[in-house]
Design a protein around this nucleic acid. Structure first.
Length: 435
DNA sequence: AATTGGCACAACCGCCTAAAG
DNA sequence: TCTTTAGGCGGTTGTGCCAAT
């Protein structure tokens, strides 16, 4: 279904979005959330199909987008992840908060592929070009339909041929004997608490019956790792990643719309625990309110992120915390019910005093992430002007923590909120600062 | 100054899957 | 069980910018 049926019913606009359209969509979603995308254009007064609105929001308008060029670390991580996940851009994007799958895909096609080739690495197999040429079994020639079938039937997103190549060639050529260091890293990864089933159902699932399924290290495409940055980040990404693969091979519980997709779909006892270095994870950039305080608890060499569910919500369960509902019901409050009041209040006045978890529209505009977008003309001019004209606006803010702190300094936030919100964010920022 | 090619980015297209009727 | 509808994803194309010629 390329174009939805709604697109045929009436003449809908195509092509680039105008600033007016952006503003309409932004204002609507800010106030009401998107809900059913197919109804968004009508309710927002747009001559677009819902699919187009969704894409525009995800790739362009949503406030937690990180703009600007990719850092070297981001590029390295993308390459690492691509070696494992193949062209599963949405899942790669899930490990790079603030980046969209579209953005990463474009980067890959326009830049990273070329860089790898220049290094003598085949961007498809992540093996040395000479090896690929000799092999003759060129991955580039894998029929699309075959790859799609492989995707749906396999768990790691690579074609079956690709899986076999990675597991049988990379593993036993590069891992078991020559790359003991990397091997030990993966072994450590395994021995330090990861559920083996996650691997068997997830990324490291073997497709070859000739290899014992518990030889998990053996099914990891290790060869490229030496070229890239620390493999611990990849391990972290995988450890965060693999539990959310279902049997169909598709991930679930990953909400890339908010760039927070590493939050597990099922979180027993309302606790999010990220084993190992959570370097691939950043908490939602939305400020947690009092009920959702992110805590970092050092346990051995691992770090754990914990979310305290609100005791009075009656929803401190897995259902609430499942992906989108998690945000729609709680943390991502600006996107839904609170936004309604938020927008109205913003229209009436800019009075301070809103809670951290209930940002008013002007406060929302102080969000450095949105401002980042605005500064690059990613936000409609009228909104940008609104931001710039605000006396509290400071384009130099570089973190949500700084932003929060300043909100308190300005008297725009009560100290109770800053203590639970900003401090946790500051802790997160410090812990994740090395990214 | 005009043309051309490369590049980055935004958006569309088509496929797959799941849910609902 | 079949059909319809919608969401999501990856591939591809269109467009504008910029540097080189």
């Amino acid at each position: 279904m390329g174009r939805h049926s709604c697109c045929y019913k009436q003449k809908l606009r195509k092509g680039l979005w105008s600033p007016e359209e952006d503003e309409k969509l932004l204002r609507y979603i800010t106030q009401y959330g998107h809900g059913c995308w197919s109804s968004v254009p009508k309710l927002a007064g747009l001559q677009r199909c819902g699919k187009s609105c969704r894409l525009r929001w995800i790739n362009y308008l949503r406030p937690d987008l990180k703009r600007g060029t990719f850092s070297q670390e981001e590029e390295d991580l993308i390459i690492e992840l691509h070696a494992v996940l193949g062209n599963r851009w949405s899942q790669i994007a899930a490990q790079l908060p603030g980046r969209t799958d579209n953005e990463i895909k474009n980067l890959w096609n326009s830049c990273l592929k070329k860089k790898l080739r220049q290094k003598g690495i085949d961007p498809v197999t992540h093996k040395p070009l000479s090896e690929v040429e000799h092999g003759g079994d060129d991955m580039n020639t894998t029929p699309k339909s075959q790859e799609r079938a492989a995707f749906s039937g396999s768990s790691n997103g690579l074609s079956q041929t690709q899986q076999a190549t990675n597991s049988e060639n990379n593993v036993f050529e590069h891992c078991s004997s020559s790359n003991a260091n990397t091997s030990s890293k993966i072994s450590n990864l395994m021995s330090s608490g990861l559920d083996k089933d996650c691997f068997q159902n997830g990324l490291l699932c073997s497709t070859s019956s000739s290899h014992p399924s518990d030889d998990l290290v053996g099914h990891f495409p290790l060869q490229p790792l030496s070229d890239y940055a620390s493999s611990s980040r990849l391990a972290a990404a995988i450890s965060n990643h693999s539990p959310w693969f279902g049997q169909s091979g598709k991930s679930f519980g990953m909400n890339t719309e908010f760039g927070c997709s590493t939050i597990p779909a099922i979180i027993p006892h309302s606790t999010i625990s990220f084993h190992h270095d959570p370097v691939g994870y950043r908490p939602p950039m939305t400020v947690p309110n009092d009920n959702y305080c992110f805590k970092s608890l050092p346990v051995d060499d691992s770090r754990y992120w914990e979310v305290n569910a609100p005791s009075n919500s009656g929803a401190g369960n897995a259902e609430l915390l499942s992906s989108s509902s998690y945000f729609e019901n709680s943390v991502f409050s600006w996107g839904l019910e609170n936004c309604n009041a938020m927008g109205k209040e913003a229209e009436m006045n800019n009075s301070p005093g809103g809670h951290v978890g209930e940002m008013k529209l002007p406060d929302y505009f102080h969000n450095p992430l949105l401002i980042g977008a605005a500064s690059q003309h990613q936000v409609p001019q009228s909104l940008y002007n609104e931001i710039k004209s605000d006396p509290h606006f400071d384009p130099n803010y570089s973190s949500s923590a700084a932003w929060l702190q300043n909100q308190q300094d300005q008297g725009l936030l009560p100290s109770s909120d800053i203590s639970s919100g900003a401090k946790n964010i500051q802790r997160l920022t410090a812990l994740l600062g090395h990214i």
